[in-house]
Design a protein around this nucleic acid. Structure first.
Length: 752
RNA sequence: GCGGAUAUGGCGGAAUUGGCAGACGCGCUAGACUUAGGAUCUAGUGAGCAAUCGUGGGGGUUCAAGUCCCUCUAUCCGCACCA
């Protein structure tokens, strides 16, 4: 078989006959199968893309063949830093780059054999998409969930810009190596914390991997405890039962009370300490665990026992968590002990006090409280390549949202989009200058753009409505994703944000469901043959391109399905890959040897039935490797039998179809199986197992004596326990068993 | 430190709900066909001469444990001064 010709032929055929077209009016049960969309990079699809998309497409095709109206769209997550940085590096522009990259990706995804209806595709950097991202921002703003506040950020002193955490390493900017400092900046946030509790509790209602749910649980970080007031300073603690052993109180350097201190000498020391702490980057604080602090000169009263305890400032207390103040219990808490030892603070042996009684005794100065580790989502970026934030600043009216009918706020073409501290859009007077929508006086546009993860937080809602310029999505066609496939690295980013946006939209009646995806699957990672991660710097990458050019994509797809557990991934094996054409050739040989129509061989009938049943469940469970193995078993059974029936070959081809879509179409014709004009095997039904052949006529039982195998017996499948016992007794040398364990259809165990 | 996972032949990996461990494939061994081929076909392939022993180590429950319980070890991933 000329694989590459076969691939071209059937891609053309599917194209000509609209095989991949989605019919929204179909009567079949709808099934939304979605892959996380790629960022269209300047390079070709890599092995990770292939391992993600090819097996996932197999699942989608299988669902289609089992009677579902599968909606399996594909799009591009094209805004964001990677595109922008690549353009900066190569002295090009992200706009035209995106266009060429999208074209190339689309071509390659078609070569891969993806069953995508491109009429439903979207590209997030196109105005017809980001118009609605801006609309989403306005809805959040309308409901008070998009807001501005002063907050600490990582600021690169060299590039004069805010950095994402991953861009600052060891307190240095990854690009210019300059120092990264913490500074306060007015920033846009989405109030994801409003949904903290729902995001946590609803994890139990979705079929997502345990690992992902655990990660989100940790990320949300719910703590039940109490808020206690020490002379007006609130602390949060989960261990109110240690309150009798408090020997000091600690404020984080950013705590407002720090600025209210009046004792002259002490406040100078405190101010200096605060300055020093502020300079330290977040990363430095996390990595350098040595605790530093300064005494404020103040004492506060323990509301439980009236003790006067010293008030300290220390940077091991995080302002953003709890109240930014903690009670120091060195007799119980290791960190407090370390701090107390360093600064010679009194350490009291801890004695626990009863929780309920303590809270009651404290009265007004204490109340139970729940706090979360989750923080609001910072979405403003001082960068060019993103969706402009649809906000106007008017001297008279203040912060004014852009009216919906004025959307999109177009991202202008800038030749110079280098980040220099101020957002690049601020350099474009034509963009900045506008009029206030309310009072019509001259006003200025917001020049920050949105985090690219805002684009991806809602894109799955857009697909069914692509092309509609009147609405973002429609309550009646917006669908919850049935199965969502993508990388585990998005567990606490994209996947949490998508859940947040879904919950927000549901709460306010925009959509009818409150979770984005019923079921989530993470593909594993393909490693180099030495078990290392593939990376350009190690020079151990393997590109799909050569294999696709040599064999077409089906062979590569089949190898990916067969050679790995999909959710685990594993090391590349050239040997196993090369084996795949051999399997196909064996199928072709069987096809060529067809010599009868109906299957009469009982063994083949049995294997055929069990194969179909097993492949059905395996495909549903993403257990592709065993599904392929089952097909191999069926082929082995067919090959071993004298008669090669068209009937059995037909079922084999249909079972294989989702795994080798192009080759299967060709095999279908080779086997001279019937096809209406323009029909595809993907319009046909997946075979069903014949219930009459799921069991063999004769069943083998293992006979055990004292749980050790003594032999096997073959009896009719209808044999009763008595029959089996009678047949098995022969292996017992006449002794009478004390006890008999009988497992129908499997074994009989005599205890003597 | 906290959380999640993983550990099975020479290799990738299978084992419904506790019921013949090693499916399927690679590799390997022998043979067949071949005027040498990394092709195809047939047979074999966990270890051991055997009885037996074997799913990271050690305990336990059970007629029966890769699977359930306890415990330890190693590796991977995520979070981490979260009060």
């Amino acid at each position: 078989m000329n694989y590459t010709e076969v691939h071209k032929k059937w891609q053309k055929y599917w194209n000509e006959h609209d095989t991949n077209k989605f019919d929204p009016k179909s009567k079949r049960p709808a099934y939304y199968h979605l892959d996380m969309f790629p960022y269209p990079s300047a390079a070709n699809l890599h092995m990770g893309h292939y391992f993600h998309y090819a097996p996932s497409d197999t699942h989608a095709r299988f669902m289609r063949m089992t009677g579902h109206n599968v909606f399996h769209p594909m799009g591009y997550d094209s805004f964001g830093l990677p595109s922008e940085n690549h353009a900066l590096k190569t002295n090009t522009h992200p706009g035209p780059n995106t266009t060429t990259n999208v074209e190339r990706f689309t071509r390659q995804l078609n070569e891969l054999g993806g069953m995508y209806d491109w009429n439903y595709s979207l590209t997030t950097s196109e105005p017809d998409y980001y118009k609605w991202t801006q609309w989403l921002f306005l809805q959040l703003h309308k409901h008070g969930l998009a807001y501005q506040k002063e907050a600490a950020v990582n600021w690169c002193s060299g590039c004069q810009t805010v950095l994402a955490n991953e861009q600052s390493q060891d307190g240095k900017c990854e690009r210019c190596n300059a120092e990264v400092v913490r500074m306060n900046k007015n920033q846009w946030f989405f109030r994801i914390t409003d949904f903290a509790d729902e995001l946590l509790t609803d994890l139990d209602k979705i079929d997502w991997p345990a690992k992902t749910r655990a990660m989100q649980t940790n990320w949300i970080g719910k703590s039940d405890g109490a808020r206690i007031t020490f002379d007006g300073i609130d602390v949060f603690t989960t261990r109110i039962d240690t309150i009798n052993s408090v020997t000091f109180l600690v404020l984080s350097p950013e705590h407002p009370f720090v600025d209210k201190l009046t004792t002259k000498e002490q406040s100078r020391a405190v101010a200096e300490y605060k300055k020093m702490a502020a300079k330290k980057s977040e990363i430095e604080r996390m990595e350098n665990h040595e605790k530093t602090g300064v005494f404020t000169g103040h004492y506060v009263t323990n509301p439980y026992n009236g003790d006067r305890v010293p008030l300290w400032v220390a940077d091991y207390v995080i302002y953003g968590y709890g109240t930014g103040a903690v009670m120091g219990v060195p007799g119980y808490d290791e960190r407090d002990r370390e701090f107390a030892e360093k600064y010679n603070i009194q350490i009291l042996e801890n004695e626990f006090v009863p929780v309920a009684a303590t809270i009651k005794k404290l009265g007004k100065s204490a109340r139970t409280e729940t706090t979360y580790r989750l923080r609001d989502w910072s979405i403003g970026r001082q960068r060019y390549w993103g969706s402009p934030i649809p906000i106007i600043y008017c001297d008279k009216c203040g912060v004014v949202p852009v009216p919906e009918h004025q959307l999109p706020v177009m991202l202008p073409h800038l030749d110079d989009f280098k980040p220099r501290g101020a957002p690049p859009l601020a350099n474009d007077p034509n963009f900045v200058k506008t009029t206030c929508p309310i009072c019509k006086i001259p006003a200025k546009r917001e020049t920050e753009t949105m985090d690219t993860f805002v684009c991806s937080s809602w894109y799955f809602l857009r697909y069914p409505t692509v092309g509609n310029d009147k609405i973002a999505f429609d309550k009646t066609t917006a669908r919850q994703i049935d199965t969502y496939v993508g990388g585990a690295e998005h567990a606490c980013g994209h996947l949490l944000q998508a859940r947040f946006i879904t919950k927000f939209l549901h709460k306010h009646g925009y959509i009818n469901f409150n979770e984005p995806a019923k079921k989530l699957v993470h593909q594993g990672m393909i490693l180099a043959s030495d078990g290392q991660k593939m990376s350009k710097s190690k020079g151990n990458t393997i590109a799909p391109d050569n294999y696709v050019a040599e064999f077409g994509s089906d062979i590569l797809r089949l190898y990916m399905l067969f050679g790995f557990n999909y959710t685990d991934g594993g090391p590349w094996s050239e040997g196993t890959l090369k084996t795949m054409p051999r399997f196909i050739e064996r199928v072709i040989r069987a096809v060529e040897q067809i010599n009868c129509e109906m299957e009469t061989d009982p063994e083949v009938q049995h294997i055929r039935a069990t194969t179909i049943a097993a492949v059905r469940t395996d495909m549903q469970d993403f257990s592709f490797n065993t599904a392929v193995a089952r097909c191999m078993e069926l082929l082995n059974a067919i090959s071993a039998a004298k008669g090669k029936s068209r009937e059995s070959i037909r079922d084999l081809i249909l079972c294989l179809a989702p795994m080798i879509p192009h080759i299967a179409e060709e095999l279908w014709d080779m086997a001279k199986l019937p096809r209406k004009t323009g029909e595809s095997i993907f319009n046909m039904a997946f075979p069903t197992a014949d219930p009459n052949h799921l069991e063999r006529a004769m069943v083998e039982y293992v006979v055990q004596v004292n749980s050790k195998k003594r032999g096997t017996i073959t009896v009719s499948k209808d044999a009763t326990q008595k029959d089996v016992e009678a047949a098995a007794q022969k292996l017992l040398d006449g002794t009478t068993p004390k006890k008999t364990v009988y497992v129908p259809g499997r074994l009989i165990n005599f205890i003597v």
